[in-house]
Design a protein around this nucleic acid. Structure first.
Lengths: 343, 343
DNA sequence: CTTGTTTTTTGAACCGCTTCAATACTTTAA
DNA sequence: TTAAAGTATTGAAGCGGTTCAAAAAACAAG
């Protein structure tokens, strides 16, 4: 396979000129350029990326690390994100290195994976997803001066680029909608407290109640544990909520997997979604619209977030000033038929 | 940032020895090794991957190229596959380069993307997915001597490693099951004919009928077109089938997106799945079990295929003899409640 | 035909590692 | 004590590009 000096030799120029033909074509005289190009064509020469990466000390590659799924498939959250990221990478001519790590991995081990990636300089930037409370990974990335963007916010008092979805807004709008239908007994089933977005959403729930002058009842909320099957947790959770002596009549559930369980639980309890229990699901999974009744959902613009996140990161890598490197996206309440009008 | 010669200088050995500490630790005397390791630790040295890749002329990286989704998310088929692939990559210490390309891209342009990837030697191997009839990509990969594995078989008379799911078996089992419930009027809604797996499944349908002594009725089959929304195609398709003057009483649908439309269409037609129309879906999407009634499905071991495909590819790259580089996986018929027993 | 200016091209240094023949050092056996 | 064999280390030559100061060539003006 031909290399750059073959091309140089045959086209009777220096390697520097061949290199310029690729990287600074305007610097080489048209006639020379054409001659070199012919030889490039003839030899079917293509610059070796590893060599290029080495000498430029950059890779035009970004990385995304996500946890293995327990369900032998990528969470659809990542799936949407990936769709956005790969699209931008394609546009901007960047590559995406995808890594995954075992679920429920030891936090220290997870950090090691990040460290390894940073230190080997395999990528120019990293996309961090699902920020946690006191997320050590963010500290690591800042300490090592690695370029990165976070999908999610942080409680740490640090400046860094992030994109997030306004869960507080989303949930509070759901509460407002339920309240407008006459609901006051509104339950909430949330995700584990250690994830930043859980806090945000729970806050939205409380804020939403307050705004609608509904008293907060701690018996009406439930936070799923970190481990275990999401569907099961949803099922058990909702059954617990419904077993109260004066149970909620509406439930907002944070996450589509949990929601699957919640629906199952509601049916198991002998109730029917939309008639006996109103339901809103944060995160509009593909199937929500196809259920009977179709589930009123809060749709997260994860795909857009993926595009943003990668665009911001690549800009940062290229040294392009980015005016908005902190973006909060609004989710959408999509009203379908799972909530009963009590008025 | 420290490099290998810094380490060599400070620990008073040659760069070769430092390199050996990493790559052939058994070749260096324990005392020396320890001394070098201390310096490595001190300087927080980590070999630069680009340099390593360049001098070894390999990257320990494989690539997967998949089409953008029209639905702003990765098809769950790829999602399962990715889960398997990334898991093996993690285990085998390989990296995965993920690329996507616009949907319905010109075939020539698609080939260019593959060419670019091959010629830049950015990866050591490529995973090709969803083989097509007369798939040019396979020719390209063979011609360029690129290492690769295909998820799917080919009609081309070529030898190459592949993993596939036995669609013929899956569909014919579905037919057999329906027949055992007393069904004889069995329709089939398939995916576009250009995809290899479509042919396979259709064959399964015909074979299944024959085996059960059911006459093949061309009016009962429908092949979805290449473009357009899958759900819509399913909906329109099933309505067309049901509008016949003696319509099928059972339908096998090839693909979960199509199935969503089929269910919608059945309901729209005023029929009810499991009562008026029996339904089997090839591909057990996450939601199938949660529908009412739960959909009897043929579950594809895509996650396992992902593991296999990457394992085979990596072995090939490493030059490890692989006894079984052509694997046909059997899908599973999961009986739920969408088929009526006519007996 | 000079001289000065601008445009092109050169070629060596560099990026940071791996590899391997050659050398140096140890150990063993006679 | 020494030669032979075995073990450990060296260092230079790759790998295949990019970069940039310096040289060369081309052009313009006097």
């Amino acid at each position: 396979m031909a290399n750059i000096s073959d091309v140089a030799r045959i086209s009777k120029v220096s390697v520097g000129t061949v290199s310029n033909v690729f990287n600074n074509p305007e610097k080489v005289k048209p006639e020379t350029r054409e001659r070199v190009c012919r030889v490039i064509e003839e030899l079917n020469f293509h610059p070796n990326l590893s060599a290029r990466n080495l000498s430029r000390l950059k890779t035009d590659t970004i990385a995304l690390i996500f946890p293995f799924s327990k369900r032998k498939r990528i969470e659809h959250y990542y799936s949407d994100l990936l769709a956005g990221i790969t699209e931008i990478c394609f546009q901007m001519n960047f590559k995406l290195l995808l890594s995954s790590c075992p679920p429920n991995i030891d936090e220290k081990e997870e950090l090691l994976i990040y460290k390894k990636m940073i230190e080997s300089r395999a990528v120019d930037g990293i996309i961090l997803t699902v920020s946690k409370y006191n997320d050590e990974r963010i500290n690591l990335l800042i300490d090592t001066k690695q370029k990165f963007v976070v999908f999610g916010r942080s409680n740490l008092p640090l400046e860094f680029p992030w994109v997030d979805i306004d869960g507080k807004y989303g949930i509070s709008e759901a509460v407002r909608y339920l309240s407008s239908l006459g609901h006051t007994r509104i339950g909430y089933i949330g995700t584990p407290n250690i994830l930043m977005f859980s806090k945000d959403r729970l806050e939205g729930y409380k804020y939403g109640l307050k705004r609608c002058n509904i008293d907060f009842n701690p018996d009406f909320i439930l936070e799923a544990s970190v481990d275990g099957d999401e569907v099961e947790k949803g099922e058990n959770g909702v059954i617990r909520l419904l077993s109260h002596n004066s149970p909620p009549k509406a439930i907002i559930v944070s996450g589509s997997q949990l929601a699957l369980g919640v629906i199952k639980g509601i049916n198991k309890f002998g109730y029917s979604v939309g008639r006996d229990i109103s339901l809103i699901c944060f995160d509009d999974a593909e199937w929500n619209v196809h259920f009977n009744p179709p589930i009123t959902s809060i749709s997260q613009p994860v795909y857009e977030a993926g595009k943003l996140v990668s665009r911001i990161l690549i800009k940062q890598i290229k040294g392009i000033e980015c005016q908005d490197s902190n973006v909060l996206l609004k989710p959408d309440l999509i009203i379908r038929e799972s909530c009963k009008n009590l008025n």
